[in-house]
Amino acid sequence: MVTRSRDIAVLIVVILLIWQGLYQFTGTGLLTAPLDTFARVLRLLGTPNFWPHLHESASAFLRALAIAVGAGLTVGMALGAHRLSGEVAEPILVALYSIPKVTLYPVVLLFFGIGMPAKVVFGAIHGVVPIAIFAMNAVRNLNPIYLKTAQILKLGPWATARKVLLPATLPEIFTGLRVGFSLTLVGTLLGEMFGSQRGLGHLLMAAIGLYRMDTIMAITLLLVIFAITINSILLVVDYRLHRRV
């Protein structure tokens, strides 16, 4: 744990040094330096009209995540429990996972119109597939001996679900949720970068037009820090869950 924290610290320092080096190398105000960018992030957070955008992105993301998790878990578990359906659906899910989903965005826009619903749907489309795939595999690969043991021990259906099914499938399902979280974020943001009037993605695109490098870098940094922080927390939980099995 100690060495790991040290590794991470070293990594962060190295990345910041490379960034600073690039800044000095490219010269004249093309990039902004790490320190200036952090300062700019703080200033952005202090700007009143930044908050509605942040709020817009956050609520789009959370709604998309809720849909992705709900639909992904339901579909995934159902497919895992019913072997034939799982067999039918798996290649389709895998195919959906590796297509460039961005091409579907215009379709989503035409069906839902520009605005919050389209963003939410598009974010959910990204997240739902991995969550479903992982949940399906978690249920499908459940060792039948666990269920037999539960029967021998005369556990009722509720106790079986809570004491056997849940702990046995949770690690895989959680991995799916972690991946789904990241992809939902990617999807929501992509949705905001195209044909949207609000949100961080929109601010990012607007800054290109204004050639505001400092804003671009500050928002990018903010998003990256957010994504990495949450993912790291999820990774730690993921690791703990997997170590138990």
Binding site: V179, F181, S182, L185, V186, L189, L190, M193, G201, L204, M205, A207, I208, M213, I216, M217, I219, T220, L223, V224, A227, I228, I230, N231, S232, L235
Partner: peptide, 14 residues
């Protein structure tokens, strides 16, 4: 471990 959590598209404007 955390790379694919980063929205790489966010770097596109940059």
């Amino acid at each position: 471990a955390t790379y694919y959590a980063i929205p790489i598209y966010a770097f596109y404007p940059l």
